[in-house]
Amino acid sequence: MQRLLLILGAVLLAAGAAWPWLSKLPFDRLGRLPGDIHIVRDGFSFYLPVTTCILVSVVISVVIWLLRR
């Protein structure tokens, strides 16, 4: 548990320090990636974040894999 908290703290610290550069990337907000489906019709809006879900799944899988090593 201590290792997990230290790693999460380091990740948050690194993300906070890199925020000025991360905010300039074209993918600054998760959920607006190419491949996400957004359909807008009269009185209807449908959003399916396919690429975002795949990306989040890969990141979580890598983090879990690293923690289990």
Rank of each mutant, 00 (worst) to 15 (best):
I54T: 13
V58W: 09
R69N: 13
L8T: 11
L25Y: 05
L6G: 14
A17Y: 04
W65Y: 05
D28P: 01
V58F: 10
S57F: 05
L25T: 07
R29G: 09
T51C: 08
W19E: 11
S45Q: 15
V11R: 10
T52G: 03
L30R: 06
G9H: 11
I60F: 01
M1D: 14
G43R: 13
L13F: 10
F46L: 15
R41I: 02
I60D: 03
K24C: 04
R29M: 12
L12I: 06
D42H: 10
L67G: 00
V50Q: 10
L30W: 07
F46E: 06
D36L: 02
T51H: 01
S23A: 14
L5C: 15
A14G: 04
L48E: 05
V11T: 12
I54L: 15
I64E: 03
A18T: 01
W65K: 04
D36K: 01
F44V: 00
S45E: 15
L66F: 07
S61P: 01
G35C: 11
S23E: 15
S61I: 00
R32T: 00
Q2C: 14
Q2F: 14
R68L: 13
A18S: 13
T51A: 15
G35T: 09
I37Q: 01
A15N: 10
L5Y: 15
R29Y: 10
D36G: 02
A18G: 09
F44P: 02
S45R: 13
L30C: 10
A17C: 11
P34S: 14
F44G: 03
F46S: 05
Y47K: 08
A18W: 05
A14M: 10
A10F: 04
L13Q: 06
S61N: 10
H38L: 09
A15M: 12
A18Y: 08
V56S: 12
T52L: 06
A14W: 03
D42A: 13
D36F: 04
Y47V: 03
I64G: 03
P49R: 01
R29F: 07
V40P: 01
Y47L: 06
P26F: 04
I64T: 05
F44T: 02
L6N: 15
G43Q: 11
G35Q: 09
R3E: 12
A18K: 11
L5G: 15
R69P: 02
W65A: 02
D28H: 06
V11E: 08
Y47I: 03
M1V: 13
D42W: 08
R32V: 00
C53E: 07
L25Q: 12
S57K: 05
D42L: 12
R32I: 00
I60A: 11
P26N: 10
D36N: 12
S45N: 14
A10W: 06
I64D: 05
L12Y: 08
